[in-house]
Computed example of a mutant assay.
Amino acid sequence: MKSYQLIHELISLVEQLEQQNPEREVTMQDFAGFVIHKVGSSALDVGPTGRLSQDVRFGKNDLAAQEQAFQLDNNIGQLFVYMSRYAKSYIKKALDNTPLITAEDFTALAILLTHDNLSKSELIHYNLQEKTSGTEVIRRLLAAGLIRQWDDEKDKRSRQIAITDQGKQLLYTVFEDMNHVGKMISGNLTVSEKLTLRYLLQKLEDFHQQHHQQKTISSKADLKRVTEAIVDQKN
């Protein structure tokens, strides 16, 4: 059967995907993005710096600095920063006329919606924030009556927090506007492009989440050590 070879290749691809994600069950969406990425990838010649196109923000001066900026890894980081800033501006508009000020206010409240309660430190950790900025988010949500807090019976040094009915009502109102934000962020990508992007972003999320959980990056020296290990592993 001519289809046998195709089935064999698909099984092989599933095995590759599982090897890359040993800690979690892969989904059909994961597999679809993985296959599209495999089939669509090609040996694109981007030159020694990985530069594909001219960024309209850059002028004509200091070409040596631009060469640094457009090295492949640096360029990817640069694009992530741009995407983050666009997303924040859209989220800010979606939160107009609500007690929620920042994207972090929204995500903190959304996290609490899915838990009976959390400690303050747990919420700050899940929301990927530093203690100072995370504490400020909690203060705002408390002042707005969107969450409540109480002393932890097992640990008197800790306080538990939970979303209030008012917080739930607000979230379900905001969700509709945030759906528009999601569509705006994914922009003019086709479904297949979205699946490929989702697969690649999930791979990056798994990588960074592991380092976040294990607190492996706490200094400039840690950054150098981990990135050198990544390069060695690729080689």
Rank of each mutant, 00 (worst) to 15 (best):
Q202T: 15
Y199R: 04
T216P: 06
L44C: 04
G145R: 03
K38C: 07
K220G: 07
I76S: 03
S121C: 01
V14M: 07
V181L: 05
T98E: 02
T49F: 15
D30S: 02
S41D: 11
A103Q: 10
R85Y: 12
T227N: 13
Q160H: 13
V174Y: 05
Y126K: 12
A144F: 05
L17H: 05
D105G: 04
L201Y: 14
A221K: 14
T114E: 13
Q210E: 12
Q202L: 11
E9T: 12
A69W: 09
V181Q: 02
W150M: 01
T164K: 04
A65I: 10
Q29T: 13
E15F: 02
H115G: 00
M83C: 09
Y90Q: 12
L44E: 12
L201V: 13
Q166V: 07
A162D: 02
S119N: 08
Q68I: 15
H125F: 12
E122V: 08
T216W: 05
D73V: 14
L123Y: 02
S84L: 12
R225D: 04
L201F: 13
L128E: 10
L13Y: 05
H125A: 12
L118E: 01
E23R: 09
L128W: 15
S12Y: 07
E176P: 00
E130K: 13
V39C: 04
